[in-house]
Design a protein around this nucleic acid. Sequence first.
DNA 1: AGCGAGCCCTGCGCGC
DNA 2: TGCGCGCAGGGCTCGC
Length: 300
Amino acid sequence: MPELPEVEVVRRGLEPAVSGSVITGVTVRDVRSLKRHQGGSEDFVHALTGATLEGAVRRGKFVWFPLRGSHHALVAHLGMSGQMLMGDGVSDFGSHLRIRLDLEKPTGEPVTVGFVDQRIFGSMALEQMEPVPDGHPAGRGWPAAEIPHSVSHIARDPLDPFFDDRAFVAALRSKKTGVKRALLDQNLMSGVGNIYADEALWATRVHYDRPASSLSVALSTTLLAQVRDVFHRALSEGGTSFDSQYVNVNGQSGYFSRSLQAYGRAGEACSRCGGLIVRERFMNRSSYRCERCQKPPSTR
DNA sequence: AGCGAGCCCTGCGCGC
DNA sequence: TGCGCGCAGGGCTCGC
C-alpha cells in the first residue's frame, strides 16, 4: 500500500495496537525483509524482544515505532506490495508473511502484527534515532524531534504541519528536470508516488515532462494544493486499492481507485474535457495524462 | 547535478 | 495447457 494515504491508513490502524505495547515475540520468516537492518535476524529478534513501543509515526511513506527509553525505532517501509496486518495471536497471515510481531497491550490483551510482502521490496529494520535539524516533531503520530537514520534524508510530507510551502515551491522551481520526476523526489517532498503524481498533474493540467523550472510560483502553489487535495480525498476513502495487495490493517480495501481521474484510465475520456487519457512510458514506469488538457511542453 | 538504466522480488494476465 | 512476456503503487546505486 505504498503512497502516503495508504501508509497513513496503516499508521492509524496500528497506533492503538502498538502504543505502550510490549513485544513478547518476534518471528523472522524471511531474512530478505531485513535487508535494511544492520546485524542479521538474531540481532533483530534479540533487540526487539521485551521492548516497549511508544506509538506509530509516519513521514512520507516511512513508518516507525519508537522504542521506549532507547533512542531506537523499528522502521518499516512497505515498498510496492507490503502490508501490515493485525491479528489476534492465532491469525494465519498467509504465505507472504515475512515478519511476525507478537505484542501485549497495556491492558494485557495480546495482539499480533504481521508484516506481509509479496515482492519483498519493503523491509523492516531496527535503527538508531538522530535529532531532526529543525527541532520539530519528526513525523505524524509522535512529538519527538528524532528520526531514524535511514529516514533522515526524506523531506517532510505536505500533510506535515511543519512542511514549508514556500521553500518547497522555491526548490521545485530550481529544478530543470521534469515536474513529475521532481514530485517523485522524496528529498524535495515525500509521500507522492506514481498514482498521486499523475492525479495531481491531471488536476493542475500540467504535462509530466514539463520542466519544473518553467512553472510559475502560482502554478507551483496550485500543484502543491492539488497534491494535498488528492491526499485528503484518498485518505477519506481509505486509500487506493486495485486488488487484495493493498489493504488496511484489518485486510479491507480502500475505495479511492474509483475516484482516480487519470491513473489507470488509458483509453477512457477525460472527465473534464472529453479528451483521450493515454498511457506513456516515463522514468521506466507508466504515466497517464489527458492528451488534450495536459499538452506536452514545446521545448522538450 | 541530472538522468537513465539496472537491480532488488513475486505473481498476475495476456497472447501465442 | 503451457510458456514467455510485460506489467505492477518504491527506492537505491551506479555510471555517464
